[in-house]
């Protein structure tokens, strides 16, 4: 029997891989969406309140900066365990992919916020100055100039974040988050079925490549420089 037949006829793969893939995709998709929704405004806040920004606010800037740095420095495995009570409070349980979304999102937000801030910093201050001379308000400048001009980099940052989330989602499987990670651990590792392990790795690789390709294409379409 060839290695391919072995993979294709493996009962565990047949029965559990589709479900695990769905869980991973769902977990990553929902946490990516939430991360983008919170991380983007947070990145804008970091940029705008920084010294020399559109609305410098020393206190806000340092408080948010410290929180974000703290969030980024906590190892994901520890964060996952530490937020279990919070997860239970939000989702009602600490098991399943829905529960895994909570630590994944909490871990990714500060990461993405910093990437957004970096992207915004690359927008030349001259463009902001030009918009101000033209009578634009700070709020309009944030959306119409800063974020818009940085959009290719913001999308590239989101691509990096989503790929990181795919990786972390596998780790979330370890503490009952489900998905491809859980499948790989319980069958590939604990029952030592290399076929399951290979299948999981293959699907994860395909997911990562797909995210990268879609992200790159989107960023390129948005980039007119």
């Amino acid at each position: 029997m060839s290695w391919w037949d072995e993979l294709a006829n493996n009962r565990v793969i047949q029965q559990m891989l589709p479900e695990a893939t769905y869980e991973t995709v769902a977990m990553v998709a929902v946490s990516s969406l939430l991360t983008a929704l919170v991380g983007l405004p947070l990145g804008v806040l970091l940029h705008a309140t920084a010294p020399g920004g559109l609305a410098p606010q020393r206190v806000v800037s340092s408080v948010v900066g410290v929180v974000v740095n703290f969030g980024r420095s906590v190892p994901f495995l520890i964060l996952m365990i530490a937020v279990i009570p919070f997860t239970r409070w939000v989702v009602g349980t600490s098991l399943g992919w829905e529960a895994a979304v909570v630590p994944l999102t909490l871990g990714a937000i500060p990461f993405y916020a910093r990437l957004v801030e970096t992207a915004l910093r690359e927008v030349s201050p001259g463009k902001v100055e030009a918009a101000r001379v033209m009578g634009s308000t700070r709020t309009k400048i944030i959306g119409g100039v800063l974020v818009r001009e940085a959009l290719p980099a913001i999308v590239a940052g989101l691509t990096v974040t989503v790929i990181a989330l795919v990786g972390y989602s596998a780790m979330a499987g370890v503490i009952g988050g489900g998905g491809l990670g859980a499948l790989a651990i319980s069958y590939g590792y604990q029952r030592f079925d290399p076929s399951v392990m290979i299948a999981c790795v293959a699907v994860i690789t395909v997911l990562v490549v797909a995210v990268q390709v879609i992200g790159d294409l989107t960023a390129r379409r948005l980039d007119h420089r």
Binding site: A130, V133, M134, R148, E149, H224
Partner: peptide
């Protein structure tokens, strides 16, 4: 500021 137009050395057009 609408009564004032400004031209910059680095032009500062919006690339997007």
């Amino acid at each position: 500021r609408r009564r004032i137009g400004m031209v910059f050395q680095h032009v500062n057009l919006f690339d997007s």
